[in-house]
Design a binder for these strands. Structure first.
Lengths: 116, 116
DNA sequence: TCATATACCGAAAATTTATTCGCCATACCC
DNA sequence: GGGTATGGCGAATAAATTTTCGGTATATGA
């Protein structure tokens, strides 16, 4: 039985929301799942910089928190799919505003921290 | 001269925005500064769970990233103030939507992860 | 002289998060 | 039997973040 090591932060609304998405890949995973459910191998193809292991670990927490749902198909070789839930989907407007902010300010930070 | 250990993530708009605010206290600091500039001791009073040290470290990164501005008053004992910049203020609507989401879903997670 | 107050910083330790590597199980195919 | 493919997990390591503790500097005032 899986259990979060670090519990969701219930101390204030902002920290609650942040604690659900503030790891390195969770917000990207939710963003990738917005249009279609993906298998772990497809998600890894979409986010090649993330290792399969870390995607697996963070998907487990997203499932645990109810933002993503997992479906296992009893086939061989095994197949599973991860889909965003309605609760997870309700976070997408927040991610959208972050994406818009990042696009609006990309040049500023590229100039500041240098395009390699 | 101060320098970020981990650079801002320029690889995509979402990760850029997240990398600016995804540490444990940065979003709370920005939220606290929305109405008035605060001195470090006042900020610590507003966020007593954060140690003065970590507030200091994260304020430095927020200043470095241009989200917060620091003013030093040459008095004794020393006095300094941290104020949100226009760039930082442009993130507040995102924080507002996170706060609203957290309020809307607080009960769900309290039921799930237990009020102590 | 000594304590106070304020902001700040260095360094070590502790904690949390991410990476790397290799293994498991299973049915299919050669 | 050996190779392939898939999803998943354990454990060790590495890296990043946070905490803890102590110290600096300065003018005031007891």
């Amino acid at each position: 039985m899986y259990e979060r090591k670090i519990p969701v932060d219930l101390s204030c609304p902002l920290r609650l929301t942040m604690s659900l998405i503030d790891s390195k890949w969770k917000s990207c995973i939710l963003d990738e799942l917005r249009d279609a459910a993906l298998r772990p191998s497809e998600l890894h193809k979409a986010l090649p910089e993330a290792t399969p292991r870390v995607l697996d670990l963070q998907l487990k927490e997203l499932v645990d928190d109810g933002l993503v749902a997992k479906t296992i198909y009893p086939e061989l070789p095994p197949r599973s799919e991860y889909a965003i839930t309605e609760l997870g989907r309700s976070l997408l407007p927040i991610l959208d505003s972050m994406i818009a902010w990042g696009e609006a300010n990309r040049e500023l930070f590229e100039a500041k921290y240098g395009r390699r």
